[in-house]
Design a protein around this nucleic acid. Structure first.
Length: 627
RNA sequence: GGGCCCGUGGCCUAGCAUGGAUAGGGCGCCGGCCUCCGGAGCCGGAGGUCCUGGGUUCAAGUCCCAGCGGGCCCGCCA
């Protein structure tokens, strides 16, 4: 596709003079052409020759190709291939038009193989805060990219409705008499997180005796059929429903909501336990600090062995998170024959159904055995994830199929922390804490952004009705937040600053959205003037036109690399690169008043819209026709 | 103490996987550009020991080693 075809052609030219399998890559700057090879350096090392002379010698033997106009040797020893812009432009644009936004940049690399992506997985006792947004954005974007690359992607959200956090809110309702209904105007998930959870934590600090009640509750939650089990489900379902409203605002979609309580309730854990016992992977500690617990023997693990064995079943008989996660991992990988039942919970904004696990009344959930399971979890959980992977390997499951997509956490800038009334140590970022109420909720940040965007929209479109302003402002807010969070690579810690996130200019989502809105305006004007698009260049192209074609043609390559490496940053960068190239083109190359250039430029604008829409559909930044 | 991650102008950030040509952007600052397809834009300027020191290499921001600084993990929490 597009630039790859030019690479292939460069390869053919080289093999024509007897050089096979030469590495060809994208040059870092347009002045070095559209493809290059450092081959002369490699050859010079082998033969002891001079790289530049070798490059000149080879380049002089290479003729032009169909899309390649000329080949040049460049000091200190590169061979650069330059596009024949007339043909390359026409070829690129016709490919873009042929494929459309849905398929441009897509591939069949995945060959229909199944991939499971688990993300979000927020405890159902609170509203999503800005740190959770990073998980959702990363997971959702990975899912989009893999789908584009031809994989069949299933998206899972693990609903952690058992365990301590759930028990905490339950204690608030059952033990401390907090009302089940939130005050007027407050969403249930916010109520649980902002009020109940924070209150329970405070009471626990004051009254140690509550600890015992909490532990008892945590255990009772695991007992299917108990009052506590049912009550926890009720709360979890209500919170989940609110959380998903937020997730949809973030652009995510799901296929399956897997309740953690069903790992135990379905017998999946029991079966996994027996398997681990049979294989001699776990043992019951009879003495020492783990007395009475079932543990994984980690003594043969090179690193984990230094930190002692991992407890799976506590001395009171309840399971730990790692235990449930091992069982769940086996199921996700298609390595367990335990049937999990489900029923339809609702549907995504795109109309696709969402299933939720439901052991009693549901029907068996069928997911083909995946070739890959990607779990998006914070880097602080690297150790437990490594334990899971280790146990899998002991069970003979290929660990390569189980990927922990790790990301560093989001903390708050000193300025933003101060807004929450938190004491700040001189210039240090502050860790968010659900328990202590130190966080920004996703919805409050989006609402602030929306307000700001709405002001800007009104400045430009005083005549728009309120609903239209709202709709557009919402899309701008979504694009701005998504871009600002996805902007940093996953392994880089992010310091969230409200002021910084509120920017709508510069290196932001709205910058990209704006370039597309401008494009649509040109299309409208061209239609009024009766200009017909034509992908055949009118003559020698302007620099800005070449650069725009160039970045459009590179998009498929970037998407392919993203799908292979699961690094998303380069996709964002390239999407922005195309927008920059478009804005420069916009400034220098008039379309409507372009005279003989008008038909070609119009085609270029159309091509830009298609390519950029394709990119934005992957990065999840909403496309706007006007803003 | 052991393990993982990060360290690029005042601030934020790309490039590191696959070493390659003058280290790209953005914010902020200074100066320009709307009778001309939307100024959420464009053009120009100032600002850099790519944390430090070694090593590998024809070539290191990129790979290796050591150190320094910051974050995270090492719980019968998740």
């Amino acid at each position: 596709m597009t630039i790859k075809r030019l690479f292939e052609e460069a390869g053919r030219l080289l093999s024509g003079v007897g050089l096979e399998g030469v590495r060809i890559g994208p040059p870092r700057s347009p002045e070095f052409g559209e493809a290059f090879t450092p081959y002369p350096f490699e050859e010079a090392r082998r033969s002891g020759g001079n790289p530049l002379e070798l490059a000149r010698d080879i380049a002089s033997k290479l003729g032009r190709g169909e899309l390649i106009e000329r080949v040049e040797a460049a000091p200190p020893g590169y061979i650069n291939f330059y596009a024949d812009w007339r043909r390359f432009s026409e070829y690129t644009l016709s490919e873009v038009f042929r494929l459309g936004a849905k398929d441009y940049g897509g591939s069949r690399d995945g060959e229909g193989r199944v991939v499971l992506v688990e993300h979000t997985s927020v405890n159902p006792n609170k509203a999503l805060h800005i740190g959770h947004a990073r998980n959702v954005y990363l997971g959702d974007t990975v899912a989009r990219v893999l789908a584009k690359a031809g994989y069949r992607v299933y998206v899972l959200n693990y609903v952690d409705d058992s365990g301590a956090q759930m028990a905490s809110v339950l204690l608030g309702f059952l033990g401390l008499g907090m009302p089940m209904e939130p005050p007027q105007g407050i969403r249930f998930d916010e109520y649980c997180g902002d009020h109940v959870y924070v209150m329970v934590t405070r009471r626990l600090e004051q009254d140690r005796s509550l600890e015992e009640r909490l532990k008892a509750l945590a255990k009772r939650i695991e007992e299917k059929g108990s009052e506590e089990f049912k009550h926890a489900r009720l709360i979890a379902d209500r919170v989940l429903s609110d959380q998903l409203t937020t997730c949809w605002r973030l652009g995510a979609r799901y296929d399956l909501l897997f309740r953690e309580s069903d790992v135990v309730a379905s017998g999946l854990w029991a079966k996994t336990f027996n398997l681990l016992l049979e294989k001699g992977i776990i043992y019951k500690a009879m003495e020492g600090e783990n007395r009475g617990c079932w543990c994984v023997d980690l003594s043969s693990h090179p690193i984990l062995s230094k930190e002692g064995d991992e407890i799976l079943v506590k001395s009171d008989g309840s399971t730990t998170y790692v235990a449930r996660d091992i069982a769940f991992a086996l199921w996700k990988l298609g390595e367990s024959d335990v049937k999990i039942n489900g029923r339809q919970w609702g549907q995504n904004p795109d109309g696709t159904p969402i299933t939720i696990t439901e052991m009693d009344s549901g029907t068996p959930i069928v997911i083909p055995k995946p070739s890959l399971v990607v779990t998006v979890v914070g880097s602080e959980q690297k150790r437990p994830q490594e334990v899971v992977r280790y146990v899998l390997s002991r069970l003979g499951v290929d660990g390569e199929r189980y990927i922990h997509y790790s990301y560093e956490r989001v903390s708050l800038s000193p300025d933003s922390a101060k807004r929450l009334g938190v004491e700040v140590v001189e210039g240090r970022a502050v860790q968010m804490s659900g328990r202590r109420g130190i966080y920004f909720k996703v919805d409050e940040v989006l609402d602030e952004l929306k307000k700001l965007a709405a002001e800007e929209v009104r400045k430009r479109h005083g005549d728009w009705p309120r609903e239209k302003v709202e709709e557009v402002a919402e899309a701008i807010a979504q694009g701005a937040l998504r871009y600002s969070i996805l902007r940093s690579e996953a392994e880089k810690a992010v310091v969230f600053d409200l002021g910084e996130a509120m920017r709508l200019e510069g290196d932001t989502g709205p910058y990209i959205q704006y370039s597309v809105a401008r494009s649509y305006r040109i299309l409208e004007k061209a239609r009024d003037k009766g200009i017909e698009a034509n992908p055949t260049p009118y003559g020698e192209l302007a620099r800005e036109e070449k650069l725009l074609i160039r970045s459009i043609s590179f998009l498929p390559l970037v998407i392919e690399t993203s799908a292979r490496t699961l690094r998303l940053r380069q996709l964002l960068t390239h999407s922005r690169e195309m927008a920059v190239n478009f804005n420069e083109f916009y400034e220098r190359c008039p379309v409507i008043e372009g005279g003989e250039a008008a038909p070609f430029r119009l085609a270029l604008v159309q091509g830009y819209i298609i390519a950029q829409t394709s990119a934005m559909n992957l990065t999840g930044i909403p496309v706007l026709r006007e803003m």
